[in-house]
Design a protein around this nucleic acid. Sequence first.
DNA 1: CTGGCTCAGTGGCCTAGCCAATAGGACAAT
DNA 2: ATTGTCCTATTGGCTAGGCCACTGAGCCAG
Lengths: 235, 235
Amino acid sequence: MSESSSFPPRLLRTRLYEQVAGQISSWIDDNGLRAGDKLPPERELAQRLGVSRATLSQALVALEVVGVVEVRHGDGTVVTARHQKSSRIIEAIRSHADRLPEVIETRDALETKIASLAAARRTDDDLARIDDALAFMAADIEAGGRGVEGDERFHGAVTAASHSLLLARLMDEIGDLIKETRLESLGQPGRPQDSLAGHRAIAEAIRAGDPAAAAEAMHAHVAMVSDVAIIREAQ
Amino acid sequence: MSESSSFPPRLLRTRLYEQVAGQISSWIDDNGLRAGDKLPPERELAQRLGVSRATLSQALVALEVVGVVEVRHGDGTVVTARHQKSSRIIEAIRSHADRLPEVIETRDALETKIASLAAARRTDDDLARIDDALAFMAADIEAGGRGVEGDERFHGAVTAASHSLLLARLMDEIGDLIKETRLESLGQPGRPQDSLAGHRAIAEAIRAGDPAAAAEAMHAHVAMVSDVAIIREAQ
DNA sequence: CTGGCTCAGTGGCCTAGCCAATAGGACAAT
DNA sequence: ATTGTCCTATTGGCTAGGCCACTGAGCCAG
């Protein structure tokens, strides 16, 4: 019983510190604060936001971990240089649907390399996992599914086969973004089969231990996904 | 007056919540807790660690932001599936010096793509910034420097010219790691000049608007850096 | 000009306590 | 048997108020 993915919005419950962190963050933007600028003292800030100092403190910890501010004992809280970057970028991209091409580009850059490394380094176990993913996707499509999960597993298995923690980490980083493109792509009629064929070509190149062929196959595969996204764009 | 880099260890001052977060994190590892497993109640945990509930709460916020745990009101605190991933990876890589090749690989994947995009999209302003960086590096080397900052500026300018927020974000992500390889590479005698020559080749391809040539030039450049790193490895 | 001192401002952390959400059991209704 | 309702112990959310520790700036003696 394949579950429809649109269920109750799972009404999010925010903790107070999250709201506070968000407000501070946007306050920083709105007032154009730059790196080095100071935030108001905790006591004042807490009062202005209507929360206790303890809660405000939690919010500051969160912002500190994310790298937006730096809390200096005895001195004050200052805005960091890294602000603007990191996490906000993901949001920015998510909001601009016309950023989709960027996701494709990035995916192409990473996965092409990953495929060639996988071809050079894959162990038999890696290969087995790749085949498993392929079989899973085939069965799903056979049963009328879109093969979304199989697709995800396949790319995960190939990434693992590349034996590069760093590349895996970056793929994980943009994982959510990729998932969106995946859903769009596999939603097109006939796409799942095409995608499966692409996967098979990639798998064969990896099995043969041919880096160049693997890279080329992966590039072609990503390009196929790209078509869809760009077509949607043009609408 | 170039400063010797070995100064007082700048004794780090940790906040209590950081220590607590660290302890909890390693406690999770040591006891082999898996996704879904529960942590002890806050009251008990705080007492065991000898801190107040407020401080423990900050630590949990930090761990939550990083994605190690999920705090559920009224239920408890559970370990997340994402544990092991993300932030820990960077540390793991930093500690294993033999991971350097991974950095090179990743850099190659990203920058090759960035170079080709830059060739296709660069504006005149982008080009001007690239030339500025080139000139800066040349002047630095002329004056006996190693051109470290110029190198950094150059790659930053090329990244900007690619006009891809996502790729820029990922480059930023591994920026620290790259910086280390940069220092190693440019420390070799004769390297700065070679590096500068490589940059010029890249810049010309971008100026000419030739994506394939730019990609190739960047690939060759990264490969050159790679040589050094691998040689060090073999020692 | 340098070094030591003081002091006001600011964050770090704690204690104590009430409020709110959740899970799970008891029990009624079906 | 199954389902729905209510109760309650457990557990996190948040606040209030207070003391301690650190920082930076100004002052003063050398």
